[in-house]
Amino acid sequence: MSSSSAPLCAQCSLPLVLTLTPDSEDEEPTSSDTNTLPDDVHLPCGHHFHWSCLLEAYETTSCPACHTDISSPPPASSSSSQQADPQILVTLHNEGGLQQNLDIFPLLREEAYLRAFPEQRKCLAFLEFCAEGDQHAIVTLLQAPPEEGDPTPGQILRSTHPFSHPPGQTGLHIAVSNGHREVAFLLLLLASEVPELDFPALVYQEAAAMGIMREEQAGLPDIRGMLDEGGRSAEDVARSMEARGPGVWHGWAGKHWLSMPQR
């Protein structure tokens, strides 16, 4: 291949485009019906991959084609708790345009984890919804008909994030750290033993409107008592945020909304 030729995917040897065809099943597509979009992940070692091909062949922090280490140190501004995470900086060209120096390590790490533990896909989606503050997406996920091997709603609600800092944060930790009060109330309603009469009426109204209420909690851990690997409760997270100035968790400390009462 001459230097002027367009690069090909190092995994499948095909052009670095995604081919789109009409959705209609009634007609055979013609050449004029076919559209293409760029689909090019350019690694630091120089090799190119389709995104799906890279996910299929991904080998931790090395290039699947030449096995060169393609990682780089974390930014100098990273906190000490994040310095274990390297970067994989690529040039990504897809339907969203051209993005240079994009760190894809978090995405590759998550995909590798899900390949090893596919049953955790719903749990990671739930934790992402907690980070985004999307309570409606959380309810939709919990109400979705289960497939074989899926975790139960109770297990999803109490799942922990393997890649948080520190690891092991629950959805409640994540909702608190992102300032999502409505999601915190929803998780407490569904996965704690906070007396139901203690909740604001609006929380009940919103839960009823979404068609979800608390199920039997016997034998399940109260989400307030779950600690991350740093030994912190969700209330510890809220206290650290409030120490920087009053915010959405002002007045919550000491009321056992985010930690278990002393017995």
Rank of each mutant, 00 (worst) to 15 (best):
G97F: 03
A10D: 08
A144N: 13
C63R: 01
N94C: 10
M241E: 07
H161Q: 08
A10V: 10
E235W: 01
P38K: 03
P151N: 10
A112M: 10
L89K: 05
P221N: 07
R244F: 13
M1N: 13
T36P: 07
Q99G: 07
G179N: 09
D26C: 13
Q99T: 12
L187F: 00
P146C: 06
P38I: 04
G154C: 11
D198C: 10
D150N: 10
S159Q: 04
H47A: 04
A57G: 07
H180C: 04
P29K: 05
I88D: 00
T160K: 12
S77A: 12
L220A: 11
P106G: 11
A208F: 13
I223W: 01
W252Q: 07
R181E: 08
D33L: 11
S52F: 13
G254Q: 08
L98H: 10
G211W: 09
V248R: 10
L227S: 05
S52D: 14
M1R: 15
P86N: 10
S81G: 08
W249S: 02
E56P: 03
T61D: 05
E229R: 14
F126Q: 00
W249K: 09
G211V: 08
P167R: 11
I212M: 00
L114P: 03
I156L: 15
V183L: 04
P162A: 06
P195S: 05
N178H: 15
L220P: 00
T91W: 06
Q169L: 05
P151W: 02
S80Q: 13
F49V: 00
G154H: 03
F185G: 01
F163P: 05
D33Y: 08
V17R: 03
R158I: 03
Q83C: 14
R214F: 02
P221V: 04
E59V: 15
L107P: 02
T21S: 14
L20W: 12
E182D: 15
G96N: 12
C123I: 09
C9F: 11
H136C: 11
V176R: 01
G245H: 06
T68Y: 13
H161G: 04
R109C: 02
I88G: 07
L141R: 04
R232A: 15
L114D: 00
C53Q: 04
A131N: 11
E25I: 14
P246S: 15
E110A: 14
P44N: 07
E25A: 15
G133L: 02
V176I: 13
E27G: 04
L14D: 09
L188W: 00
C53A: 05
N94S: 11
L89Y: 00
C12Q: 10
E215S: 14
R224A: 00
L186Y: 01
G251M: 08
L227C: 06
E182S: 13
A191W: 00
R158N: 07
V17C: 03
A57N: 08
L18P: 02
V194K: 01
Y113G: 07
D134I: 10
R121C: 06
W257V: 07
G46D: 10
L186D: 01
